[in-house]
Amino acid sequence: MNTFSLYVTACLLFMGFGAHAQDTYYCLPCNNPCDDIAFNAPGKCTHCNMELVKQTKEEHERLAKKDRLKVAFYLQNGVEVLDFAGPLEVFTYAGFEVFIVSKDKNQLFAQGVLRITPDYDITNAPAADIIAFFGGNAGKAANDPDVISWLKKQTNVQHYFSVCTGAFILGKAGLLDGLTVTTFHESIEGLQAAVPQAKVLSNVRYVDNGRVITTAGISAGIDGALHLVAKLRGDEMAKKVAAYMEYDKWVPDQGMVAKQQ
């Protein structure tokens, strides 16, 4: 073999085209730049600290596309920042695709300080696997016939998720009838009056009815979101997300599971 042939062979081996192509490892999709980084040894991702899994590039891309659940966050003007920001962190680090929907595409003000531009309005929002609602002026959406009509028309939704008084929006659409649910501690009686067909609990972080998950106020949304991640992606994924967020207050199964699904 001449010198040029040896050089070409060495290059091909280095690029992985030889008989002993180097194994590749990827972290689970987490919506971060490390999603596209291939590692050459097992261990943990140096960016997101997720466990690395041995995969070919094709397997990794196929898995990421298949498992990328779409989550629609409906936000209204005056929405509570932590109500949605906490679950947003959880779902994105778990590899879900989150997008923002509102009544229209006008800029929103969360608690009067944070400016948010929705990705979609209710006329053009894509289908979602999970639809989430949040507190902070939630009555604006709950009492808007157009928003409730849009919600009722959504099909093939795997899970409905609410934080704080976002439960009132689900209740107005009839999605809480006959269920055990919860909401912000100061709104327990109000939700019970608004949805008399539901059983509204206090002193619980979240209630899982299988398809519908409601949580208590503000920080409880993080617990509910981690519970949903554990339900859909396994306990280890949820624990890794909590650890990455340094959320050491999470206790698995701290909420109530009213119905398995």
Rank of each mutant, 00 (worst) to 15 (best):
G166Y: 06
R205M: 13
I188C: 11
I131H: 06
L201G: 06
H159G: 06
Y206L: 00
A173T: 03
D146T: 14
L175T: 01
C164L: 07
Q192V: 07
F161S: 02
F133W: 04
D146V: 10
G174A: 04
V195Q: 08
E186A: 14
S187E: 12
F168D: 06
G136N: 06
N143Q: 15
Q197I: 12
C164W: 07
G139I: 05
Q154R: 13
D208F: 00
S202D: 15
K140T: 13
E186H: 15
A198G: 04
L170V: 02
F133C: 01
I169R: 02
F134I: 07
Q197G: 10
A167G: 02
I188M: 09
G136W: 06
R205H: 12
L176C: 08
L151P: 11
F134C: 11
N203A: 14
V200C: 05
L179I: 05
A141W: 02
P196D: 11
V147R: 01
F133P: 00
S149N: 14
A193D: 09
L179G: 06
I188Q: 09
G135K: 11
Q154D: 04
A142M: 03
Y206N: 02
V195A: 06
A141S: 09
S162R: 02
A198W: 00
A132Q: 05
T183G: 01
I169S: 04
K153N: 14
K199N: 09
V207C: 04
Q158V: 14
V207D: 05
G139C: 08
D129E: 07
P196R: 09
L191Y: 02
A132L: 01
C164K: 08
L191G: 01
F161G: 00
G190V: 10
L176Q: 06
I169L: 05
G139L: 15
S149K: 15
A194I: 06
A198P: 04
D144G: 03
A193N: 14
C164T: 06
A173S: 04
N143R: 09
D208H: 02
N143F: 11
G174D: 04
D177P: 05
V181I: 14
F134L: 04
W150E: 01
L170G: 04
Q158Y: 12
V207Q: 01
A132Y: 05
I148E: 01
A198N: 02
L191K: 08
N156A: 15
V204D: 10
P145T: 08
H159T: 01
Q197K: 14
C164H: 10
V163I: 08
E186C: 13
N137L: 10
V147T: 08
A138I: 05
G178K: 01
V195N: 03
L170A: 00
Y206H: 03
S187L: 14
A194V: 10
A138G: 14
V207G: 00
S187D: 14
I169P: 01
F133Q: 01
V147H: 00
A132F: 04
N137M: 14
V195M: 03
A132I: 07
S162C: 03
Q158K: 15
N137C: 12
A198L: 06
V204K: 09
I131P: 03
N143T: 11
L176M: 08
G166F: 08
G171T: 05
C164P: 07
G178D: 11
I148M: 05
L201M: 13
P196I: 06
A138P: 01
E186T: 15
